[in-house]
Simulated scan of single mutants.
Amino acid sequence: MKSIVRIEYCPKCHWMLRAAYMAQELLTTFEEDIKSVTLEPSEVNGKFTISVNDNQVFDRKSYGGFAEIKEIKQLVRDIVNPEKTLGHSDRKPQ
């Protein structure tokens, strides 16, 4: 069963383009594993969260800012296809 990703973002903070970029990256990377990515404007100021199958995997406030796309991909991968390699994105900084 393919996963459903939801990105909830604050439109007042002008984070729609960031959400769209992340959606594009996730759909490209996980084209066989993701059924859809939904962009949802939040009614809560400053909110930016990512959920997979209704389980939150990222929250900007808890994280202390925005994560790099490679970190987001790792979080999503761990749920949608844990065996998938992300190539250079999987390498830890040395």
Rank of each mutant, 00 (worst) to 15 (best):
30 F>M: 00
88 H>S: 10
18 R>D: 15
13 C>Q: 09
58 F>A: 10
48 F>R: 13
67 A>R: 06
28 T>C: 01
90 D>Y: 03
77 R>S: 05
5 V>N: 04
64 G>S: 07
20 A>L: 07
87 G>K: 00
49 T>E: 13
55 N>Y: 04
42 S>R: 08
43 E>D: 15
93 P>M: 08
2 K>T: 13
20 A>K: 04
45 N>A: 15
8 E>N: 08
76 V>C: 11
81 N>F: 02
56 Q>Y: 00
48 F>L: 15
44 V>G: 09
16 M>D: 09
65 G>F: 11
62 S>K: 15
89 S>V: 04
32 E>M: 05
16 M>P: 00
16 M>Y: 01
32 E>K: 03
33 D>G: 05
93 P>E: 14
31 E>D: 10
39 L>M: 05
81 N>M: 03
40 E>T: 10
22 M>V: 06
70 K>F: 01
1 M>G: 12
11 P>N: 10
79 I>C: 02
33 D>E: 14
84 K>N: 05
89 S>M: 09
50 I>L: 10
38 T>Y: 09
94 Q>T: 12
69 I>G: 01
27 L>D: 00
53 N>G: 03
78 D>I: 05
86 L>A: 07
51 S>G: 04
19 A>R: 08
23 A>R: 06
36 S>V: 00
22 M>S: 12
3 S>R: 04
40 E>N: 12
23 A>Y: 01
4 I>N: 14
13 C>S: 15
25 E>P: 05
56 Q>H: 04
7 I>C: 15
68 E>R: 15
85 T>M: 00
39 L>D: 08
15 W>Q: 08
66 F>S: 10
85 T>L: 03
5 V>T: 02
27 L>E: 07
21 Y>H: 02
93 P>D: 13
30 F>Y: 08
34 I>Y: 03
12 K>C: 10
10 C>H: 13
42 S>D: 04
26 L>R: 00
60 R>L: 02
57 V>K: 09
82 P>N: 14
59 D>S: 15
63 Y>E: 15
79 I>G: 06
63 Y>C: 10
35 K>C: 05
89 S>I: 00
91 R>D: 12
92 K>A: 06
15 W>N: 13
34 I>G: 04
53 N>V: 02
29 T>N: 01
61 K>D: 14
29 T>Y: 03
31 E>I: 05
56 Q>N: 08
78 D>W: 02
69 I>L: 04
9 Y>F: 12
4 I>R: 15
80 V>Q: 09
63 Y>V: 08
87 G>D: 03
89 S>F: 04
44 V>T: 14
23 A>D: 06
62 S>F: 11
49 T>K: 07
23 A>T: 02
69 I>D: 07
83 E>W: 07
60 R>T: 02
21 Y>K: 00
90 D>S: 06
86 L>Q: 06
84 K>E: 03
76 V>W: 10
7 I>Y: 08
24 Q>F: 02
81 N>T: 07
60 R>I: 06
45 N>C: 14
42 S>W: 05
71 E>C: 06
94 Q>N: 14
28 T>L: 05
66 F>T: 03
11 P>W: 08
63 Y>Q: 13
14 H>I: 14
9 Y>S: 09
8 E>H: 12
13 C>N: 13
30 F>R: 03
11 P>V: 12
50 I>H: 08
18 R>Q: 15
81 N>Q: 09
